[in-house]
Design a protein around this nucleic acid. Structure first.
Lengths: 203, 187
DNA sequence: GCTTTAAAAAGTAAGGT
DNA sequence: ACCTTACTTTGTAAAGC
């Protein structure tokens, strides 16, 4: 396993030193972000393709490793945000996002769109919400997807709003601020999505 | 073929120009008090004119970049105007500027909503990342342009070198969306 | 890669009242 | 809650770090 790592460029190039350094960081991240072996292997596969395409030339290796890792999470629908990966590797979120889009463009990768339903569990546990509230939020999001209110909206904001709406309906005492903080979005976004969900789903 | 006629507006035209002679930007700065010139920050001097409303970057090499015009014609008119104003201010410019349109940005409305998520899966060379940006980014090969497509059916087309490229791009995408049944009409 | 210019789309964000 | 301002994305040239 992980033989992919060893079958790249010559061991004496500066690029290779950075390469090893970047991947020792990936090992740290594996624990920090609780990543599976499958995700790590997929990261290796994607990074290898980027190397073969010459995408690493003149670019920061950590940035591309982070982007490959994020792409692997997306491809396997592992709920890790761009911010999680960026914070873990200690790079700006904007840089990881730019490298990620470069990988999609140059390697012709097609990723499943982030599903707000898969964001619910994380937000709910961070905010300490009940199972009942979580269940109702999932149903709200399923209904929302069918009416296509989700198009163009941040999945995290939608999931947070569905959970907040669910709290209100279940009488669970959580503030917008609690949910917003757990989801990493602002109260304003929750308010806007909440309004949209209530109106379009007539709840 | 498309069921609706898209409404297209040219929003910004970028042109490069050269008067093939060096310029002293410090003298221009003294002559025209409204220009912005901070060589530490950027080598170009910013020269704004009210009509056509544009901002032209002037470099010591005599090359320029004009941005903000609403058409190819206005962009060319703006560059000529800048050169004329410089001459009136005492700057000796021998040749007329050689102007090349480099980029045209336009907005358009296809007149119907879009199944964005399906479009992301069915349109080649497209990416849709709602956590990063609300629009789907589509790279068209001919004309070679990039279109930012939104769920509302509105879009932004950029990268065109001619106004006709804009209309062709919008028509091509509109036709493609209809063929793949990604448009939702009647609102 | 960055710096600066312009403009649109729609979403998100931040600050003030 | 509002409003305003500002940032995200796309493309493009310019000279220089």
């Amino acid at each position: 396993r992980l033989r992919t790592w060893d079958s790249r460029s010559q061991v004496h190039e500066p690029v290779d030193r950075n390469f090893r350094q970047a991947f020792s960081e990936l090992d740290r991240l594996k624990d920090k972000l609780a990543l599976s072996d499958a995700v790590i292997e997929k990261t290796a596969y994607i990074y290898r393709k980027a190397l073969d395409k010459g995408l690493v030339r003149g670019r920061s290796i950590p940035g591309l490793v982070a982007a490959a890792l994020y792409a692997a999470c997306r491809d396997t629908e592992t709920p890790r945000t761009l911010t999680d990966v960026a914070n873990g590797i200690n790079i700006k979120r904007k840089d990881v996002a730019r490298c990620y889009r470069l990988l999609l463009r140059e390697l012709d990768l097609k990723m499943p769109v982030v599903d707000p339903i898969k964001c619910v569990a994380r937000i709910a546990s961070k905010a300490g919400l009940s199972e009942k509230t979580k269940r109702k939020a999932l149903q709200i999001l399923k209904d929302a997807a069918e009416i296509e209110i989700s198009a163009g909206k941040d999945p995290m904001g939608l999931a947070a709003a569905a959970l907040y709406l669910s709290c209100v309906m279940n009488g669970e005492n959580k503030t917008q601020k609690d949910v917003a903080q757990a989801a990493g979005v602002t109260e304003v976004t929750i308010r806007n999505r909440y309004k949209g969900l209530k109106e379009s789903l007539k709840l | 073929m498309p069921q609706t006629k898209p409404i297209v507006s040219i929003e910004n035209v970028v042109a490069s120009a050269s008067i093939d002679q060096r310029l002293d930007l410090n003298i221009i700065t003294q002559t025209f008090p409204d220009v912005e010139y901070h060589p530490d920050q950027f080598p170009g001097l910013v020269f704004r004119i009210k009509s056509p409303k544009t901002a032209t970057l002037i470099f010591s090499s005599g090359k320029m970049v004009c941005t903000g015009a609403k058409s190819e014609e206005q962009s060319i008119k703006a560059v000529r105007s800048v050169v004329q104003i410089l001459r009136k201010g005492g700057v000796k410019i021998k040749k007329d500027a050689v102007i090349v349109i480099q980029n045209i940005v336009a907005s358009a409305n296809l007149g119907g909503k879009i199944h964005l998520e399906q479009a992301a899966r069915n349109l080649p060379r497209s990416m849709y990342e709602p956590e990063q940006f609300p629009g789907l980014i589509h790279r068209m090969l001919d004309p070679k342009t990039v279109i930012l497509l939104f769920a509302s059916g509105k879009l932004v087309c950029t990268g065109a070198k001619k106004e006709s490229d804009v209309y062709r791009s919008v028509h091509n995408l509109h036709t493609l969306l209809e063929e793949k049944r990604l448009m939702i009409y009647e609102s």
